[in-house]
Design a protein around this nucleic acid. Structure first.
Lengths: 204, 204
DNA sequence: CAACTGGTGGCAACATGCTGCCAACCGCTG
DNA sequence: CAGCGGTTGGCAGCATGTTGCCACCAGTTG
């Protein structure tokens, strides 16, 4: 159990070097920003990299673009509808689980116990199988992505549906359809939760 | 216009040194964490410091405690019901206005033009006069503060009022009263907005 | 004890949000 | 043109959230 990303890399950075298969799950683009310590030569990068995200990241043009380039560099990127705790798996040597807190003030559990690793791996594999290729979701959410930032902004400003819909030139019905779409993408079951997640993703 | 807190201190840090009257407004405790560059001796600290916050920070025990110690060290701390853009005022020499973005990715406008400074100062003074002593709000929100974190957690988990109320052992009516209290403290007019603000404050 | 106070919970009325249904309207294709 | 699939917007009905009103209870005070 380590505290903060810096300490994580200081204490567990060596585990990353020489990993051949790396898999990670995250809810936003901030969490495992650097999945490589600085100054690791390309020949030591993992042979296979897989990243699992939530659909919410595809609501932001910039995040989407980033994932596209990551995918273009050979990393397999998929989108999961389920709520996954943030995780990194390094071969069968170690897993790292992110815990409570956010930003620089977050705890991480570094686990090297083989049985636990096997368990986490199997769970990850199940989630991976149940998830969708980036390109597919990307296409599905293409039009929504153009509208979502404005919708979230209006919601975040505390507008009623009525006024927000008029503001966007949509009917109340269609506006609410889009809000429902956004909430589905965020995996939220209430507007409060949607607000929290939108803020987590850095929209707003 | 500078980008990021680091650049701000690099470019405008010298303005802080020798300031006799410092006033700032912020929505959370992260924004103007360091209102002094490192290594400034106490005799050069401002003679008068005033800080203006939103009631939401008093929903967290830890933030509240922090503000109390700040106040105990001689800084005047007040709570404003209004939505204020984050601002620092350094005598009548400069004002710094925080702009869009959050965290390390935020823009700041450093203004030294006298007329603008005068205008911002007068607005700040108006807001300051309309605001309340920390101690008063602190006392008013004392009981709510014990409940708020649990309420926000349940809301953030996407629970319906029904189940959340049962979970807390409250009646639906009282639970909703508390939710309304929390939303008032956050200055939110919709639950979505409340979610965003709760996340901004670092609750959750 | 009586009066007062502050918090609670039930009820009701209303506001807001959610979603299925359907008719209307594209743009496309055969 | 006719048919098709997809999107829109209105409507209705229901679910959820918001608030005032009031009766009740517990603790306090005179």
């Amino acid at each position: 159990m380590v505290h903060g990303a810096e300490e994580l890399f200081a204490r567990a950075g060596h585990l990353f070097v020489g990993t051949t298969e790396l898999a990670c799950a995250a809810n936003d683009l901030y969490t495992w920003v650097a999945t490589q310590p600085r100054h690791v030569p390309p020949e030591l990068h993992p042979r296979s990299m897989r990243k699992l995200y939530r659909p919410g990241v595809l609501l932001q043009p910039s995040s989407t673009q980033h994932l596209r380039t990551v995918a273009a560099r050979g990393t397999a990127v998929r989108i999961s509808q389920d709520d996954i705790n943030e995780t990194i798996i390094l071969d069968d040597r170690a897993v790292i689980l992110a815990g409570a807190g956010h930003g620089a003030d977050r705890n991480y559990s570094v686990i090297t116990q083989p049985d636990t690793i096997a368990g986490v791996r199997s769970l990850f594999e199940a989630a991976w199988r149940a998830s969708t290729e980036l390109a597919v979701c990307d296409a599905q959410l293409a039009e929504l992505r153009t509208l979502a930032p404005r919708i979230l902004e209006l919601l975040g400003a505390g507008h009623k549906d009525e006024t927000a819909a008029r503001n966007l030139g949509l009917s109340l019905r269609t506006y609410r359809r889009r809000v429902a779409d956004v909430m589905r993408a965020l995996g939220a079951t209430s507007r409060f939760q949607a607000g929290v997640r939108a803020r987590e993703l850095g929209v707003l």
